[in-house]
Write a protein that binds this DNA or RNA. Structure first.
Lengths: 404, 404
DNA sequence: GCATTAAGTCAACTCGCTTGACTTAATTAG
DNA sequence: CTAATTAAGTCAAGCGAGTTGACTTAATGC
């Protein structure tokens, strides 16, 4: 809400906001519950049958929902369920990592329809952007081949890359300094003509878990992402929380002790970077994934030692996260092979006691999320879809001209 | 959103929601900016002059705002500023602590108009509730003496007490086990006829800081509360965050190390309870506050040692909070004397490096908040006012019957 | 077969923001 | 000292979106 005017206030709203909200509520309800009839929707959203009917009619003519066959379920007129149309909207997701970039095209349901990857020069963002733009153009072309509507229905480009963003100029090699300084979003917006949004990789991972993974429909969840670095994606009250300056969840820099010899950033102990170092692997190797997988399956001593060490610190990170956030569940995701993630989670048990030790839980305290290396790109793509279709407070408010 | 129906969906909204939101936005704008004219409000909220005019007229006839004298500020017709009327609403706040309970009555602006305290039997909630009900009745009587409108304009009773709530049955003496099991809210609701809400003491403290303190108008702030225990009140996106089960911020149980000898709950090192133990003080002493103050002013060796130890752990807590939440500021508040809190914050400097080390900050990373022992009760009272008058997402939604 | 139950529609209504013209009242230019 | 300009605020008609209540449709159950 930074504004030219010195007066600080939230926006008001009007019927447009009302209607936008109700549309989004319908879409979310269909996303969470599968197909629902108008009557179901009316009950669930507390709107009148008539209001729902009008909205559904609109959504149908916009190509966002379709009617299924009527179903008889007891007395009364059979109901006509509606479901979301996957081709109702598309988005592009971009994952920029240290040595690699991946782009995907997804539909409204979060299904990946096209994907492409390329190597990236670590220190030359201007060259990198050219590669990225080509990658995006390719994915877009593939998408256009799948759906003729795709270009019209493209809601945006989501970018995920390692944070934190906007700190003091730093040459910390963990942070891709050259990329931090490059006007990436502007360049991509110009180069693609799309709305561009940025989040860190852990946030994207949480978004992916929320849209198609273990956090689907969970309003309070934390997603630990063990990638080259480590971060936490925070889903609070059903929305991704990004903090006062967009860096919430950047726990890689959290010190493991207040002082003394143990005062190391978590990232130096429990991240793939630390694994590479510990095992003397080269992250730029094209078969690095297979190498890691093989070492886990072979129960390599050094690998097991790293897992134990990382699990020790991660166990405690989970404890702190639970204590601070009181989430319904914590999801561990990783860019590492699934076997490694599973071993890691196993090694983290038994978990430390915390307020999450409740009598009645219906979700596990800690679970393994996706380890698909494409999931960050998927989450990045899900962000513009969420912005466009999920019920958000901000979506109700009037906007001056264009939203930030 | 737990519901009888298995269908999960957010509520829709209608014109009532629109109007409710806009009223709240006006009130918040006046609270944050002092007096504003209708034209100012129209610009700030993006509503039309006419819409604002109607809403202000309503608010005026409801006794929530009044016009001030017209002011000339350049060309054009002079504007008529409006400000909030403190007597527009009242709330009762109740702070239940281990040996003591405090009740306050506050007005719409958060000014304390009446207060009362009493000792509380630690282990007999049924007796305690009688004392509390008498205390509340007294405060209410005092309030009625100040404003004839008070009873009509009483929006609710806010209760703050040490958490966490709803865990496994535990006899942990830190947690007031007898009170945890007692049906407190129901009893108070029946006994007072008011809407009753509960939060933990740190959350109440954050609410107090937000309404009248250092977090006034700050949308991302964390309030560390060093009381008998220790907790953090989280203000995220301008709203208090309470987690999946209402226990977010209960960092007293956070372990200071993953294992080994240092694996102590923070509460055992940096809370007034630990201070009492360290200095062999009796928290039930009526002059405990003065005793502490004297020891700080005298720079008592043991006191200084405790401060250094606690500061060591708190410094690191701030580091973790900054790293996880990326707040605009961290506020340390305490039930201890101001001198102690100041010494503690001094001893915490220099702070550990974190992502909060940004080039352009306009708020300090760490500041001392209120140390008024009544501020928890004030924050408790502010909660129902906030629920009734602040722009909240939930306030827009239709409700089935009564909100939870 | 007829009563009952439930989905969904129709058409009139209402509420609250918007629109655009208008009034009021100040400052500034000539 | 007027006239032009600027800005606050009002008036009255308009409109969009959800609401209301009666009605239609189409099943099941006794």
């Amino acid at each position: 809400m930074d504004d030219i005017s010195p007066i600080r206030a939230k926006s008001g709203t009007n019927q447009e906001g009302t209607s936008a909200h109700n549309r989004r509520v319908m879409i979310e309800a269909l996303r969470l519950n599968g197909a629902l009839s108008r009557a179901d929707l009316a009950r669930a959203t507390q709107l009148t049958k008539q209001a729902v009917s009008n909205i559904i009619e609109d959504l149908e003519s916009d190509g966002l929902v379709v009617a299924l066959d009527a179903v008889r379920k007891g007395r009364g007129q059979p109901s006509t369920p509606y479901r979301l149309v996957p081709e109702g909207a598309f988005a592009i997701g971009l994952h920029i990592d240290r040595h690699l970039t991946r782009a995907v095209a997804v539909d409204l349901m979060g299904s990946v329809l096209a994907r492409a990857e390329a190597n990236l020069p670590f220190d030359e963002p201007s060259k990198g952007v050219e590669i990225i733009l080509k990658l995006i153009a390719g994915v877009r072309r593939d998408l256009a081949g799948i759906s003729a509507q795709s270009e019209k229905r493209l809601v945006g480009l989501g970018v995920a890359m390692p944070g934190p963003f906007g700190l003091k100029d730093s040459d910390d090699k963990w942070m891709m300094p050259a990329w931090q300084k490059f006007p990436l979003l502007e360049t991509l917006a110009k180069g693609t003509g799309l709305n561009v949004g940025l989040q860190n990789d852990a946030a994207a991972c949480a978004t992916a878990e929320r849209i198609v993974g273990a956090a689907h429909g969970v309003d309070h969840a934390v997603c630990l992402y063990v990638g080259y670095g480590i971060g936490a994606g925070l889903i609070l009250n059903g929305e991704l929380y990004s903090g006062g300056h967009g860096n919430a969840g950047e726990i890689g820099m959290a010190l493991l002790a207040p002082a003394g010899p143990g005062s190391t950033p978590l990232e130096h102990r429990a991240s793939l970077a630390s694994l590479y170092q510990h095992l003397d692997l080269n992250p730029a190797d094209s078969d690095i994934y297979e190498q890691m997988n093989a070492l886990v399956l072979a129960e390599d001593t050094k690998m097991m030692a790293w897992i134990d060490g990382a699990a020790h610190d991660l166990r405690w990170s989970v404890h702190l996260i639970e204590t601070i956030f009181d989430p319904k569940t914590v999801i561990l995701t990783s860019g590492a092979p699934e076997a490694l993630a599973r071993r890691l989670v196993e090694a983290m048990h038994p978990l430390l006691p915390s307020i999450a030790d409740r009598p009645a839980r219906n979700l596990p305290r800690l679970q393994v999320g996706t380890t698909d290396p494409w999931s960050i790109a998927l989450g990045a793509a899900a962000a513009p879809i969420s912005r466009a279709f999920d019920p958000l407070f901000s979506a109700i408010l009037k906007t001056r001209s264009a939203p930030a």
